[in-house]
């Protein structure tokens, strides 16, 4: 039997960086699970979610938060959601199935994404240089979520407050993604 345990490593590993008016935090310790709705099972799944999380599933392009495990539901495309939540186990799908009892199709994506939390007065100035979305607060409102690209890298972005966003990008290109954001920050400082 092996006498060592594996130690989890964050995708980028910078923890927190503060530039002049922009703060970056690498979010770790969260589980990311994609949820697909089985054919003709939307109502049952929605019911189960309402019973456990006390929310209705968001419409496409919106996100919702729930108290249970600090969960955040992102509606990304028809019948496809991401659930991001606090989880200390290595088995996020089992955790979800405690409440949702296999009403949806789940796929653990926790190790496939890096999550960067960007905030501060200059956040919009940083993001609008590299992101084609219209980020004005009356178009991309608080709670909105969208997939898009930054410097040709796929990104899922969620607006948390007027000047705070969560950015998810594939782990395999996370260093390039981080580099793109830092370069944009340096360009406006």
């Amino acid at each position: 039997m092996l006498n060592f345990t594996l130690k989890p490593e964050p995708p980028i590993g910078f923890k927190e960086k503060i530039f002049k008016d922009v703060k970056l935090i690498e979010e770790t310790g969260l589980s990311i699970v994609s949820m697909s709705v089985p054919k003709n099972n939307f109502k049952q799944l929605e019911k189960r979610i309402f019973e456990n999380y006390k929310i209705k599933l968001p419409v496409i392009g919106k996100s919702k938060t729930a108290k249970l495990n600090n969960s955040r539901f992102l509606a990304l495309q028809p019948d496809q959601y991401f659930i991001i939540f606090d989880n200390k186990t290595n088995y996020p799908i089992e955790e979800l199935n405690k409440s949702l009892r296999k009403e949806g199709y789940f796929s653990d994506q926790s190790d496939s994404w890096c999550i960067i939390n960007i905030s501060g007065k200059n956040t919009i100035n940083v993001l609008e240089r590299i992101c084609p979305l219209n980020l004005s607060s009356d178009v991309f409102t608080i709670g909105n979520v969208n997939r898009t690209s930054m410097e040709h890298i796929g990104v899922i972005m969620v607006r948390i407050t007027i000047d705070q966003f969560i950015l998810l990008s594939p782990r395999s290109s996370s260093s390039s993604f981080y580099h793109a954001i830092v370069t944009s920050i340096e360009n406006i400082l």
Partner: peptide, 11 residues
Amino acid sequence: PLLGPRDANEF
């Protein structure tokens, strides 16, 4: 139709 105006770069 679902997401509103989006840049053609995304397509």
